[in-house]
């Protein structure tokens, strides 16, 4: 696996749209070619070389490529977005759309991410070793196709509207979340190790949400139906099983209505 290292040398005046900073865009390119890749700042198209010092070279394919990004990325959007393979490590906080529409590979951010990161994640592993903003792993604004695969892990807290419209995959939030977790969910699994504020699983059709901490105010559409002993992300515990959201439509399979589950750790 070949490694490309990007070091921020100049801060963008506005925000820099790094749609070309991912293993797929870099694959098969040398440092000089990568420096020529375009990056929008507002309506201007500039190059990655204008903002980063680039060393090393990429592998022949995305899967053979590793990218390390150093320096302040708080004004960089779309880092690692749409990548399909390989590895990428960002050693600083970064802005919106980081790791969105990922299909494969491994992306690690050693810092916080802003809102709208990991949108519609379809595959791969996305790990955030800091906090995340709102709409983490949700569908893009307006869209109804949210996270469908892969694993998204946040070591810190996340904001509101996390995992909206989730249809598959797994999300682990080790800290707390604000309101609207898993709204409109229709599949997949959310593990929340901390607490949630309100409206967990609103209009949830299918899928599972595990909550280790407390929910400030529970949704009225959830009904407890029993208890279960389970191992969830390495923790063995007893969970209370709630069916829901009873106010939402639910599909039928083999004559039986399929509900979503909210498991609350006892």
């Amino acid at each position: 696996m070949n490694t490309v290292t990007l070091t921020v040398k100049k801060q963008p005046e506005l925000y820099l749209e790094c749609e070309n900073v991912n293993t797929d865009a870099f694959a098969g390119k040398k440092a000089a070619d990568i420096a020529k890749l375009g990056a929008y700042q507002g309506k201007e198209i500039l190059t990655l070389g204008d903002f980063f010092t680039i060393t090393g070279e990429a592998g022949a394919t995305a899967a053979d490529t590793k990218i390390i990004v150093n320096g302040d990325c708080t004004k960089m959007k779309y880092l690692g977005a749409k990548m399909t393979g390989g590895e990428m490590i960002v050693n600083y906080a970064c802005d919106m759309y980081t790791g969105s529409w990922m299909k494969g590979g491994k992306l690690t951010v050693n810092g916080d991410v802003h809102s709208f990161c990991g949108l519609a994640l379809a595959g791969g592993e996305f790990t955030i070793n800091g906090n995340a903003g709102n709409y983490l792993g949700a569908a893009y604004r307006g869209d109804w196709r949210g996270m469908s695969g892969g694993v998204l892990r946040v070591k810190g807290n996340a904001g509101s509207d996390v995992a909206s419209f989730m249809i598959g995959g797994e999300m682990i939030i080790e800290g707390d979340v604000d309101i609207h977790l898993g709204t409109h969910m229709e599949g997949g699994k959310i593990i929340l190790k901390g607490n949630a504020n309100r409206r967990v699983g609103g209009q949830l059709v299918k899928g599972e949400i595990y909550v280790f901490g407390k929910i400030n105010v529970m949704m009225p559409g959830y009904k407890p139906v029993g208890e279960k002993e389970m191992e969830v992300d390495g923790t063995k515990a007893t969970f209370v099983d709630y069916l829901g959201d009873l106010g939402e439509r639910h599909p039928k399979r083999k004559g039986e209505t399929v509900y979503g589950h909210l498991y609350m750790k006892k």
């Binding site: 929008y40 893009y140 307006g142």
Partner: peptide, 20 residues
């Protein structure tokens, strides 16, 4: 306005006299 997802990709300014 209720379908921002319809225009998310491909909304950059292109060269020439056209607008976004």
């Amino acid at each position: 306005w209720y379908r921002p997802e319809d225009k998310h990709f491909d909304s950059h300014k292109k060269p020439g006299i056209t607008r976004i």
